Computed example of a mutant assay.
Amino acid sequence: MAVVVVQDASTEAGRVPPAVHRILAAAGLAARPVRPGDVEDPAAALAAVEGVVVLGTGHSPGAAGPALVREALAADVPVLALGTGARLLAATPAAGAGGGSRATDGVRRIELTPAAATDPLFGGTGRPSAGLRAAPGAHAVPDGAVVLASCADHPGQAFRIGAGAWGVCFLAQDGAGRLGTWGEELLGRFAALVAARAEHTATRAFFTRRAGAWEERFAHQTPAYEAAVARMRLAPGRRALDLGCGTGRAMPALRRQVGPRGQVLGIDVTPAMLAAAARHGRTRHGHLLASDCTRLPLPDASVHGVFAAGLVDHVPDPRAALREWARITAPGGTLLLFHPSGRAERAARHGRPLDPADLLAEHNLRPALETTGWLLDAYEDAAGHFLARAVPLPRP
């Protein structure tokens, strides 16, 4: 796992401040230092990267953010920007321009806002130490940002953009990269968050870069999706999910099965994929929701059909996912695992032999389903498709 560390152009190339390096390494993260002007291909720079730390960059508050930060925001890669790096984050076009704030004399005490208590990063942190003072000068807080730390003259000393980008204006490092006790605690929490989100970050980054062309590239697979959905045999008026829906290619077929009185919900962890689904008219067939497919915001036994195409290979813990899907499925419901290619075809395409430990191999999938609340009642690993259908086991 790796974190890109964006730092001032005046710093020595290839050198990360020792404190930053130590804290990242303690969380199992390798640091990849870059300077803003050295990044020619932002997407390539973020390949196999789970987070971004932006230190002082030497940019003025109004300067446009580097392409690397824009790319990270678009791909939902976690970002922590400190000191003048926070001003760069706030000025990045993807963050959205916000209102200015008054200059401060640098003496006012920093206080956390009520929103900090439930923030994924700031929640549980102590009060900023007395030695941390408000950042001087005016800068804009991005539109829609959640303010997490404030002072009397400057309401945007720390903020969050979306679910995973934080700017901390007052936490300026010194020349040796020291952040102080409170700053090191915050960076340590960020490193732990990056490590915990690593699987999902990689998935979102991978699919974000491909979302724009996904529908056109795989449009020829639509008939295979329709045939697979037909195997679910859902009754009219039922509720169906397209989990890991991507651009929602299964949603029209699900809608035809459940009819106008039924409900169809397309769920994906990558917002860019959901935006592509909306562009292709999938909202005519159901609702779209950004969510982790292993922690669904749905009540127990509230759906009747779960369609998951190519999803099991992309979840960090497949058995936990199967257990969650069993939780939300009503008695008599159906789970359909599908892929428009068979296992052997996919292995050959990637230049590797079939893996006996593959969870989707029947001798592995059947017991995995049974221990997570399912009974396998159909299994096909053909040349042109993979399909496994399961029904919920009776609840005790």
Rank of each mutant, 00 (worst) to 15 (best):
R160S: 01
A145D: 06
G144A: 12
P252M: 03
L179A: 03
V6A: 07
Y225R: 03
P120V: 07
A390W: 00
L375A: 15
V229L: 06
T92A: 10
P223G: 09
P394I: 03
R231P: 01
D76K: 06
Q263L: 13
R35I: 11
A275F: 01
V16C: 10
A86I: 06
P236H: 04
L289F: 12
E185W: 03
L112V: 08
P42E: 06
R160Q: 04
V34N: 05
F218W: 14
Y379N: 01
A235D: 14
R22F: 05
D300P: 05
G164M: 00
V52K: 06
R32V: 15
P396Q: 07
A227K: 15
M273I: 07
L335S: 06
H200A: 13
A368K: 08
A195R: 15
P61F: 01
A44K: 14
A290Y: 01
R178S: 13
R366C: 04
H21C: 07
V312N: 00
V3C: 09
A235G: 11
R22K: 12
L46D: 02
L112P: 00
D143R: 15
E199V: 06
R160D: 01
H280G: 02
V146D: 05
R109M: 04
G305F: 10
R295Y: 05
R349C: 11
D76S: 14
L254S: 00
A361F: 01
L80I: 12
A74H: 09
W214K: 05
T247K: 00
H339E: 08
P33Q: 08
V391T: 15
G305Y: 04
L80T: 11
G124N: 10
R209S: 09
A75T: 13
H154F: 01
A205V: 03
V6D: 03
L68V: 12
H339R: 12
R35K: 14
Q263I: 11
R102A: 15
A63D: 15
R108F: 07
G262V: 05
S101N: 12
G310W: 00
V5D: 03
A13P: 15
I110L: 11
L121T: 01
S10A: 15
R87N: 14
A30P: 01
G175E: 13
P353L: 08
P136N: 08
T201M: 06
L365M: 08
P78E: 05
T118D: 15
T283H: 09
A228M: 03
V107Y: 13
Q7S: 14
P33V: 09
A19T: 15
P396E: 07
D153M: 09
E380A: 10
R239Q: 03
L241E: 04
R284K: 12
A47P: 03
G100R: 13
A301N: 09
A228T: 03
H287A: 14
G180K: 02
D38L: 11
A86G: 03
G62Q: 13
P299A: 13
V315S: 02
A158W: 00
G373M: 07
Q257R: 12
G124L: 08
W374G: 02
H363W: 07
D38R: 14
A308T: 09
L234G: 03
L187V: 09
E40G: 15
Q173P: 05
V312A: 11
V264S: 00
L274Y: 02
A158Q: 02
L88C: 13
R352F: 08
V194R: 02
D242Y: 07
L186T: 02
F207E: 00
P394F: 05
R256T: 10
E226H: 12
P155C: 06
D358L: 06
L375N: 12
V312D: 01
